[in-house]
């Protein structure tokens, strides 16, 4: 199944691109994808990284075809 993954801020900088489409095994969970990307791109301080699936934060779910997964570093608005 395909999911769209978006990276922001310092994570986009570490990854070297703002987004990519990934082919994942059916049943891949949010935390599995997070661990995988943290490892392959050397994303620092993974505990501070929040994941939004279809714009909803921190859901411990299995991903589905077509989901939009965003890797969000600490917020700095204001």
């Amino acid at each position: 199944m395909k999911v769209q993954v978006k990276y922001f801020g310092m994570i986009a900088e570490a990854v070297g691109k703002p987004e990519e489409e990934l082919e994942l095994d059916p049943g891949t969970s949010v935390s599995e994808l997070k661990m995988n990307q943290v490892k392959s791109y050397g994303i620092k301080d993974p505990d501070s990284v929040q994941i939004a699936v279809n714009q909803h934060l921190n859901q411990e779910i299995e991903l589905k075809e077509g989901d939009e997964v965003a890797f969000l570093p600490p917020f700095a608005g204001g």
Binding site: F75, G77, G78
Partner: peptide
């Protein structure tokens, strides 16, 4: 709320 919840990033 804006500071805590809005996904804005600052370089």
């Amino acid at each position: 709320e804006i500071k805590a919840r809005v996904p804005i990033f600052g370089k």
